[in-house]
Design a protein around this nucleic acid. Structure first.
Lengths: 204, 204, 204, 204
DNA sequence: CATGAATGAGACTTCATTCAT
DNA sequence: CATGAATGAAGTCTCATTCAT
């Protein structure tokens, strides 16, 4: 009935629909977990029929995979905001805070952990996560190497590489902790983070 | 008729059966994940009928809970071995190693992560994990406060408290990393761990 | 595409399906009883998959409830036919007759009794039955108060109220008797009914 | 080990056990209904193992049947107490009262109705109930024929026969009503009963 | 006689997926 | 392109019944 402009528009309409599905799926996964969230659930949230989802994704699994891959991009942005030695403590504390709030639209710890666990069994997910992690680490590394006057930490290449990995451990640790101990005293939390972060940023 | 010698391990036949169920469940959970593993699956692995399991556990959930609680004890032992400043680096590296090997009978990262994710939604599991974590942290703290000549780190009470939490982050970070990046270069791994651990053990 | 003519009976296809399920359930409940009849049983009888039933009813219980509620309407009609002092004896005798024939599509004693027993334990069913009974009694009462020249019994309000309840006992008694003594001699039956009914219709 | 006196003693010990089972079963059936009560339930209540029950009864069904048969005797006693024209109104009202109280040890309406419904499908139960009813009716009849000076109603044989059946309807009606309308106003209840009973006892 | 561990069938229910419309 | 009715397999759990001890 309606005549669309051919070509890129049609493609973007399909993409928009894919996106709506993924957003809905993310919301459902966050709320109920991977397995408890049903396709009907997702379809309802995306305001479309269950059958239609299968035009855009082969599987429930394919949705999971696509979400994992999409999260990569979003995380990159989040990390970029951390990169300033004054803000990093606050940034990590805020990340913890956000992870503890369950209903958030953004990345959710439970989901992150489930995804990580699934990576153990599903090579595709493992690969997607690995690619994401590599990028993240590269960003960290780059920042640590940047001269102090440019807002970096002014480390050598070797130092930066090692400490980027160390920072990764800290972030991961925060995530796991947020899931298991969401009521952790915030003062203690900040003290512990500071204790770990400070030596990483100081050239010894 | 029969007088059992009382013993620390599964004393009665009932306890032995409980144990067989838990072992089978652990194996299945590790292989397929909490939700994907079915009761029939567990029953097959434990070589008994599905119905019988319900004589020993109220729920699938109860099995999960029992596993969590049993893991606590095992983890305590593992941590005790870490407590010596020379061995701690090796200990953490070995823990990582072990977490990467999937089929093991002992604690498995995927399971740990799923348990943690589940804690977000299941208060009972959250409670069990929290109790376990509290013990672990207390052990860390105690060790950090012990005088250097007794093999401890000789820190003040305040220092010990903060750094025990910091160490916890590191361990958690290792776990998450083991799930997502099992092929991580071991040299880099050790370097990063050393980078994080060393400042914690030094009185500044 | 298709414009349905609105109608008093199952208007939509969904309603028609609900109806098919209820009919099948009724048949199964009559044949095996509430608890012994299985969802698979009902699904087979309704010639659909068991899962589909759950699109139309939340529960096995919901089906029971829907049947109870549907029976109400049918009973109202049946009672309306009784309301004429000449026909009431024949009407009750015929009701007994019908209750004794087991395979009928219409109301069945066994089901009525099980529903009543279930009301003891299930508040929802209790409520539905109570509502039905209230209507029935009101109908009886109304008829007893109507002047004799209008085909009623010409009783006072108080008389009518009491005797409507008395009639209710008789109907209930007939039902229970039909279940337990279906071969009861019809002559004796009619004599006993007459013995009970006549004083109720006479202004003393 | 223990030497019993042979013969009747051994028999009575077995009978005692049968009795314990039946009492337990009755209690369970009253509390949960025929189908919801489990053998394990009954075994617990009877303080014996589930397996042992099968030495005394072939089936769960056999227990049901035995209970039905045993109820006959108990009901006879209950009815005998009703037989006095002054007490009959109070007696029926009390019966209603007792039927409404669910936890009672004695006969329970829900059970009575379920039994009656089951009679529709199970010939053995039908037969047992029929035998019981015949006895009950005979007792009623006998009482109605007894001369007034002996505490009876002084009716002719024909009258007595019809009215005994009529009384049966009333009792049945009360039972069904007790299940469905346990909160029925007691004043109305008594008025309705009186309305029905009085003409039966009067020689017209 | 007595136990209660064990079984296996079957109950209810959910859900990913398909397909006629 | 889109729907949502329909399926069927699978999941959790219960329970009457049996049998080794």
């Amino acid at each position: 009935m309606m005549i669309d402009a051919p070509g890129p528009v049609a493609a973007s309409r399909a993409d928009a629909k894919r996106d709506r599905i993924l957003c809905a799926a993310l919301k459902c996964f966050i709320e109920h977990g991977f397995h408890a969230a049903s396709m009907a659930n997702i379809a309802d949230t995306a305001q479309m029929s269950a059958g239609l989802i299968y035009r855009y994704f082969d599987n429930k699994n394919a949705i999971v995979l696509a979400i994992v891959q999409r999260q990569v991009a979003e995380k990159q942005a989040a990390i970029r905001q951390l990169q300033s030695s004054e803000q990093i403590l606050d940034g990590l504390a805020q990340a913890f805070e956000q992870w503890c709030r369950p209903g958030a639209d953004t990345m959710n710890v439970a989901l992150l952990l489930e995804m990580s666990a699934e990576a153990t069994r599903n090579p595709q997910i493992a690969e997607a996560l690995l690619a994401s992690d590599a990028q993240t680490r590269a960003q960290f590394e780059q920042w640590l190497r940047r001269p102090r006057e440019d807002g970096g930490a002014g480390l050598t290449a070797d130092q930066a590489r090692t400490r980027a990995l160390a920072m990764r451990f800290i972030v991961d640790g925060l995530a796991l902790r947020a899931a298991r101990e969401p009521d952790l005293d915030r003062g203690e939390l900040r003290a512990a983070i500071r204790q770990l972060i400070q030596p990483l940023l100081t050239d010894v």
